[in-house]
Write a protein that binds this DNA or RNA. Structure first.
Length: 283
DNA sequence: AACGTCCGCAACCGCATGGTT
DNA sequence: CAACCATGCGGTTGCGGACGT
């Protein structure tokens, strides 16, 4: 069956909203309430798509929105919920009053998803790159993740790009690479027991002794997910459409002999990070 | 100071779902 | 029951500011 366009696109404005448009939309909704998005622009006198109006209202104009940075406690909530809900941003947003799904999604993609997914003989480590080998401000400039991602996408097409994102490609594993002098172990060839963190090779003795790795001085996460689980979860569409396993299901993550994970929930999150959560078939 | 690059965010796009005709 | 409509949702894109060289 054909799908009718959400609105007549000819002659409609796109891009950033102006203050006047915001005012018109706000005033209209205050007087008439939400809903009827399709007809709203016409009635309100806006040259915008109804969808665009709805998004603008929900994500920006609503009066109950909380402004400002997402706090660390909110981040914790997001991480926790994401570990059990996956990318169901609207559900996560429902637990954070005043925050929108778009805001949370953006925050996740630009900050929280930068958990490094490292590969070590089939096992993946997730941690916050911002806390690894970071000194002061995050380094800017240089070929960092995003451009790398674009390069990968150009070479491997959309799938490669998607995969790059899925494995945290937007993230800053590479950003943690010291600008001037790479650590001695970076240039060496990777030993079997060494851990590749982005482009930084960590010697085995540094991480193996600890379940909770604290590379940069501040622990974020040291969760392991079996490589098998990782790969299967992202390679099958079935896996994507299955209800996320409870966090505790990660208890048996020893398939690859990976270090036992004291924080199993994050291992489950590791798998979920790699598989999109589709609404299809969800309860 | 100029330039190049990256990051964060707002907004767009396409698809799914549920309701109505 | 099929077609259509309205809305919701998640992924993706592109702009502009910030920052490093």
């Amino acid at each position: 069956m054909g799908r009718a366009p959400c609105c007549e696109k000819v002659g409609l404005k796109k891009g950033r909203w102006t203050a006047e448009e915001d005012e018109i939309l706000s005033n209209y909704i205050k007087e008439n309430g939400e809903g009827s998005w399709r007809s709203l622009p016409k009635k309100a006198g806006l040259l915008r798509c109804g969808k665009s109006c709805r998004l603008r209202w929900i994500n920006y104009l609503r009066t109950d929105l909380k402004r400002g940075n997402i706090s660390s406690s909110e981040e914790e909530t997001i991480i926790t919920l994401h570990s059990s809900l996956g990318n169901r941003w609207s559900l996560i947003a429902a637990h954070l009053p005043g925050r929108t799904d778009n805001e949370i999604k953006n925050h996740w993609n630009s900050h929280l998803s930068r958990r490094i997914h490292c590969f070590r003989r089939g096992a993946f480590l997730i941690m916050d790159p911002g806390k690894i080998l970071s000194v002061g401000r995050r380094r800017r400039g240089g070929k960092t993740s995003r451009s790398m991602m674009k390069t990968a996408a150009a070479g491997g097409g959309p799938a490669a790009k998607a995969r790059q994102r899925e494995i945290g490609g937007d993230g800053g594993a590479i950003k943690t690479k010291p600008a001037a002098s790479p650590p001695p172990h970076q240039s060496q060839s990777a030993g079997e027991e060494d851990l590749l963190v982005g482009e930084v090779m960590l010697p085995s003795e540094l991480w193996e002794a600890n379940d909770d790795i604290d590379i940069g001085g501040e622990l974020f996460c040291s969760s392991w997910a079996s490589g098998d689980e990782f790969m299967s979860s992202r390679s099958t569409s079935e896996a994507r459409e299955t209800e996320p396993t409870p966090a505790t299901s990660g208890e048996t993550d020893s398939a690859m002999g990976a270090p036992r994970n004291p924080s199993i929930a994050h291992a489950a999150a590791a798998q979920r990070l790699t598989g999109r959560w589709r609404r299809t078939g969800r309860p």
